[in-house]
Design a protein around this nucleic acid. Structure first.
Length: 439
RNA sequence: GCCCGGGUGGUGUAGAGGCCUAUCAUUGAGCCCUGUCGAGGCUCGGACUCGGGUUCAAAUCCCGACCUGGGCGCCA
């Protein structure tokens, strides 16, 4: 009988107060401890661990022998009576009456699930399904789920509309990164590097505030602890606002996500203390960043992007979440709005663009967008791109496009920076990198 | 793409020309043990990434391939 379990209880749903009750639990055989006359079987489920105790002579001999023999990590369903017991880990134990082995695990295991012997990340990723059975990994992904829910709750509450834009796109791109070519019937197509063009087009729809949480694909051959070839991006776009408003929204969102993660009980399993970052975050402009770096002995020529070591140096100096604003247009995409010379005494070669930085890694970047058809077209061409390829995008700017602003936030980078995890692969179930295409 | 490391039982490691029929832990098989919670004790199994080369002798040195860790570039 390999049947579903009726009235299944999680280990954490049972307490000593259930003394005498009949319960059914199901899960994986985490550990077995045989002390001769007494045998402990630790069953693991999503909630935690339940101890099943068998006394020789007090339990059927056949059952005792079967429990003794069931291999670790097998899936079992157990029916028995709850007994309040001070000596048991959770204050109770289960005296079994029946055990059904629903799936017997082969031996030996590719990974230790108890935490006694470590495994390298590569080994863990090869056997990710089993790695997810370990406490630490399990909690990382439950937290990931909470982070995504928090983001949706936050944006939904503020009137955002969740959207889905295509991941298979034609050749036209923002430039910069390399794309994955794919075969699309008789044509060539590409995997989308970001929803940028589409979310902007939606600004011409009247939706006003949109967001999308979706995969992005980058064909870069980088091999680092903070890059993936398939990542998840939170993208927002808001009409009738400037970069200032979406920056404020971003910092509030980050703080909100932190508070939601802090509430999570499993956080203790990651040996982590979280502090909610104070808003508003510190803002420095590009010129100040260059100056700070120069004072620290890191010379950056004006107009150059920040190198990895410059990012780290700056992160050490500031040591909290911060924005870098007012970037040179030359190193920002064509859709970033240049400063308004007349209104604010700003330079035309400076854009209303920003990056959100964690001391260790860039988390997000955004800007006020160009909403003038003419300027946008000129910008595309001045970046050496062909306006023809952008016709579908440019068209949306010709029939009433409001001013707008937005940003893109890397979910994995937010998670890794929040949880103090060094390798981005740890926060993706099945990461795709230069070498890894399976599992 | 560049630079620097590393590939030893299922997992994590020690070993740096002969002392290696290769260390330790954990796992596996089995035995003892009636309160474990990283249980304990005993017995047994299980490995030098692959291909060339140097040498009387290679896990150890050299070359190549493959795999892999880190830094940088690029990129978000």
């Amino acid at each position: 009988m390999k049947s579903p379990i009726r009235n299944r209880k999680y280990a954490t749903e049972i307490t000593a107060d259930n003394e005498g009750e009949h319960v059914r639990i199901a899960g994986w055989v985490h550990e077995k401890r045989h002390l001769g006359g007494v045998f402990f079987l630790v069953v693991r489920d999503l909630g935690g661990f339940a101890q099943v105790t068998l006394h020789k002579g007090e339990v059927e001999k056949e059952l005792f022998e079967r429990v003794k023999k069931v291999p670790r990590e097998s899936v079992v369903a157990i029916e028995g009576k709850v007994k309040s017991e001070k000596k048991a880990p959770n204050g109770y134990e289960i005296i079994p009456e029946r055990m059904e082995v629903q799936s017997e695990a082969s031996q030996v295991l590719p990974l230790d699930t108890t935490g006694k012997v470590g495994a390298e990340l590569d080994t863990r990723l090869d056997a990710r399904f089993m790695d997810l059975r370990t406490e630490r990994t399990k909690h990382i992904f439950i937290i990931r789920s909470r982070v995504l829910k928090a983001i949706r709750d936050f944006l939904d509450e503020r009137g955002f509309i969740e959207t889905n834009t295509p991941k298979i796109v034609s050749a036209a791109t923002e430039g910069g990164t390399a794309l994955f070519p794919i075969s699309y019937f008789e044509r060539e197509a590409f995997l989308n590097q970001s929803p940028q063009l589409y979310k902007q087009m939606l600004m011409a729809s009247g939706f006003d505030k949109v967001y999308e949480i979706a995969p992005i694909f980058r064909a870069e051959e980088h091999d680092t602890t903070k890059h993936l070839n398939e990542a998840t991006s939170v993208d927002i776009e808001v009409a009738f606002v400037s970069d200032k408003e979406v920056m404020a929204l971003l910092e509030e969102l980050i703080a909100f996500v932190y508070t939601k993660v802090m509430d999570y009980p499993g956080l203790a399993k990651l040996n982590l203390k979280l502090d909610v970052p104070k808003t508003p975050f510190r803002r420095i402009n590009y010129d100040e960043a260059i100056k700070l770096l120069s004072e620290a002995g890191e010379e950056i020529e004006w107009g150059e992007d920040l190198s990895t070591s410059a990012e780290h140096t700056l992160g050490d100096i500031i040591s909290e979440l911060y924005f870098i604003t007012d970037w040179p247009c030359a190193i920002k995409p064509f859709y970033a709005q240049p400063g308004d010379v007349e209104a604010e005494g700003k330079r035309k070669d400076i854009c209303n663009a920003f990056d959100l930085m964690h001391p260790k890694v860039e988390l997000a970047s955004g800007s006020q967008r160009v909403h003038s058809y003419e300027l946008l077209k000129r910008n595309i061409e001045s970046k050496g791109l062909s306006a023809d390829g952008f016709e579908f995008y440019l068209d949306s700017f010709r029939y009433g496009m409001p001013p707008h602003a937005g940003w893109g936030l890397g979910v994995e980078r937010l998670l890794m920076s929040m949880l103090g995890i060094d390798n981005i692969r740890e926060v993706v179930l099945f990461p795709r990198d230069r070498r890894r295409l399976a599992p």
